[in-house]
């Protein structure tokens, strides 16, 4: 077997995986999204219409028409993107110093600190989000502590609003920001910062001109890992959010399980994917420009 052929064989595995578990489900969703909602099993019309003896393609644009005409979807999309984007920024602001601190910590503490970052994953995601309800609710831990200390005289409204959703997303996705940043910062040669200092750079400027630009790939990876799942997030807005925190993932969930409108749910899913490809492509372009 030639080297080129062997390389192709190695690459075939991930490609096969992607085709089987990503492309095929996507095509199925796409197919369902152009069907009509019917009462039955499955709850959508067949793509190929065999009624009347002749074969015909039965495409329906009804779901997409509603997607573009009903405000609900656009608002939910924009809301989701806003929540995801703001949460990503907060994850970065919290995660960067955290990752930097771990890299700078004495070597013997590093794996322990990394373990602590990953530790929450050992508990179910759902339980951890529920736990926040206990912390944030009107007679929850945070309000009780603040009341006891006399810092506030009335309980704060911390739950079922945007604040709670931000807390939930930032808390849940922070490790996805910290880990790629850590990997990137750990590769940074300390001699580069010494060189910057040697050439007259104060530590803060050295950070801005050397560390920050060189950690861009880590920032981009972390931002994608937080932003993309956060856009589709539905557990956190369902549990912690309120009426003003409608996100597209929640809408999708409701279409599917509450309304049993599979074509509509699929249309939302397809549109979400297309929408997410945009920022991914953009970041890819940016990173290629960086290394070229």
């Amino acid at each position: 077997m030639s080297a080129a052929l062997r390389r192709r064989a190695v690459l075939a595995l991930p490609y096969a995986w992607l085709v089987l578990f990503f492309l095929v489900p996507f095509l199925i969703s796409l197919k369902i999204s152009v069907a009509e909602s019917v009462i039955g099993i499955p709850p959508y019309s067949a793509l190929i219409d065999t009624a009347g003896g002749s074969w015909g393609l039965d495409l329906s644009g009804e779901s997409y028409r509603r997607l573009f005409t009903d405000d609900l979807y656009a608002v939910a999309y924009l809301n989701a993107i806003k929540f995801a984007a703001v949460s990503t920024v907060f994850c970065l602001l919290l995660g960067y110093p955290l990752a930097y601190g771990i890299v700078r910590a004495p070597r013997r503490f590093r794996s322990l600190l990394l373990l602590l970052v990953i530790l929450p994953f050992w508990t179910s995601f759902l339980i951890r989000v529920y736990a926040w309800i206990g912390l944030l609710k009107e007679n929850g831990l945070i309000n009780n502590v603040l009341l006891t200390l006399g810092l506030i005289h009335q309980p704060l409204i911390l739950l079922n609003n945007a604040f709670a959703v931000y807390v939930g997303i930032v808390y849940s996705y922070l490790p996805f920001m910290v880990l790629p940043l850590y990997a990137q910062l750990e590769k940074l040669d300390p001699a580069l910062l010494e060189a910057a200092a040697d050439l007259g750079c104060r530590p803060w400027r050295a950070f801005l001109r050397v560390t920050l630009p060189l950690s861009m790939p880590g920032i981009a990876a972390g931002a994608l890992l937080v932003f993309i799942p956060a856009v589709g997030e539905f557990v956190i807005p369902s549990l912690l959010g309120g009426p003003d925190t409608l996100m597209i993932g929640k809408v999708l969930w409701d279409e599917f399980f509450a309304n049993h409108d599979w074509p509509m749910a699929s249309a939302v899913a397809v549109a979400m994917l297309v929408l997410l490809l945009l920022p991914m492509g953009l970041i890819r372009r940016l990173l290629q420009g960086e290394t070229a």
């Binding site: 040669d189 010494e194 200092a197 040697d198």
Partner: peptide
């Protein structure tokens, strides 16, 4: 006197060139 105020420059063994 911190490194960034010293009137010396260093050539590093690894060169420590800024890759970006």
């Amino acid at each position: 006197v911190p490194p960034y105020r010293r009137p010396v420059n260093m050539m590093f063994q690894s060169y420590a060139l800024f890759p970006h």
